[in-house]
Each structure stands twice: as C-alpha cells, then as structure tokens.
Amino acid sequence: MSVIQEVAKTRGAARETRKGDGKAAAIFLAPWFLGLGLITAFPLLASLYLSFTDYSLLEAPSWIGVQNYVDMVSDPRWLKSLGVTFRYVFISVPLQLAAALALAMVLDRGLRGLAIYRSAFYLPSLLGSSVAIALLWRQIFGADGLVNQVLAYFGIQGVGWVSHPDYALGTLMILNVWTFGAPMIIFLAGLRQIPTMYYEAASIDGASKFRQFFSITIPLLSPIIFFNLVLQLINAFQTFTQAFVISNGTGGPIDETLFYTLYLYNQGFGSYNMGYASAMAWVLLLIVAGLTAVNFLASKYWVFYDD
C-alpha cells in the first residue's frame, strides 16, 4: 500500500506560492494572442453578428435582431437535430473512450509487435473522414454487408442497417467508436508518463491488478482522461463528415441522422440561410460551453494534478 500512498502524497504536497509571472506569460502567449486577435476573433465575432442578420451569402447581410433565435424554437427539424446529436454524444463518447482506454492499456507494454498493433488499430481513424467511408461502411452494415452475411449464417435475415431509420444512428455511433484511434494514442502517451516503479512497488506490496488500475492508473491518468472527455465531447457535438458522407448530405433516412452541424450546414450552404446557421452555431456553442463548464467543475472531484 505504501507506494500508492506515496503517489497520493506527491500529488497532495503543499506548494509554496509564487508571485505572478505576468511578463513571462506575455512572452509565452504572444503567438496565441496574435492569433486570437488576427485570426480567431474576427470570424468568431462576425458569426455572432451574422446570427442577428438575414444573410444569404450572396447579398450583404441585413439586421433582423433576434428573429433567427426565435425561429429556431418553432423549427421541428432543429429540435430533431438537437435530439439526434444529444443521443449520439451521450452514448458514443463514453463507449469510444472506454474502448480507447482499454486498448491503450493492452497496447501499453509487455507484448511483442506493439508498434504494429498500435498502427493497425489507429488506421481506421485515418479513414474516418474519407469520402470512401460511406462505401466502406456499406460493406459492413449494408443490406449485403458483412454483418448480414454473418447473420445469414445463423439463419437471421438482417436489414440494411445504415439506411434503416431505426438503426442508422446506431451504425454511426459504432463508426465513432471504431475510430477510437486518437483518444487511444493520447491515453497511450499518458500511460507512458506514469513511472513504472509505481506499479512495480505496488506489486511488491501485493496490490492486485484491479487495485493498481484504480489506485495508480486512473488517478495519474485523470488529467488525460479529462482531456479526452472534454475534447471528444466538443468534437462529438460537431460531428459532421461521417453523417454527411453516409447519408449523402440529407441526414436521412427521415432525418434520423440529422446531426446538429449537418442541419446547420444545410441551412447555411444549401438553403443560403447563413444568418440562421450562425444563430444555430451560437446556440450550440452555449450548450457545449455549458457542458464543458460542468465538466471542469466536476473535475475538481476526480482529476488530480501534480501542482
């Protein structure tokens, strides 16, 4: 047990407070401030301004106040897209992170050919945004795909999963889990930061693997888990490419894969309602920022930093 306590102690040791580092911070943040002022701020504020206008892209915007926001509330497709997105985020993000962490643990050390395995498991993530993904996904979940071939072997007749209103969203969730490569790599990098001596010492102390996982791995990895959670959440809310490519841009069948960003894109570039799309984007930002804030507040109770 002693080493586990050692870990806890290192984390918890009181620090002498240091006076401000304003000048150093200004230097280290100089590129970022420059980027914020020159490149990030303008499009951000412009989209906020546009959200209060009627803007077709093809003509100059005209101010209409909060009309876009008002319209949103009574837009059934907007509500639908919100529902689809929430369901997707809250199911597929935890699953993806669990898969990523599990694989990262397995591929961390102690096995021959780890480099090959890691690369192989990362490969799908490289394809996630490819135009070919729609076709490839059909090879698995299509009416004549791999899944149905296996089911047929057991005498079960499947449907075309990707294009059935009841299952289409599910296949997209699986697609998201399938591309767990990025969080897996980040977990791997995080696991490498945990000194092996902790584990070695814990083994000597007789701590089980199970206990090691919860007492060493999870606490020491918690900043990285937190990072993945926050970022995957932000990304999942903006899921676009997969749904776009697989549903041919329609969000079909029957809007069952009409992700928030897909609807926003269709409004902005398909229907030339960029004002409405911008308003949608800012509502999304508020939602995501709110959830992220909750995440940060909750992190006080489970994320451990060594500072």
Binding site: V159, G160, W161
Partner: peptide
C-alpha cells in the same frame, strides 16, 4: 422494388451502386 432500407442504400450509392 426492394424493401425500404435497401432502397435507400441503393439510392445513396450513385450510378455505380
């Protein structure tokens, strides 16, 4: 015509599919 889900799948597959 094929059933609904296959119909939509084919519809999204362009001339080649």
């Amino acid at each position: 015509t094929p059933d609904g889900s296959r119909t939509i799948e084919i519809q999204n597959a362009g001339p080649e599919g």
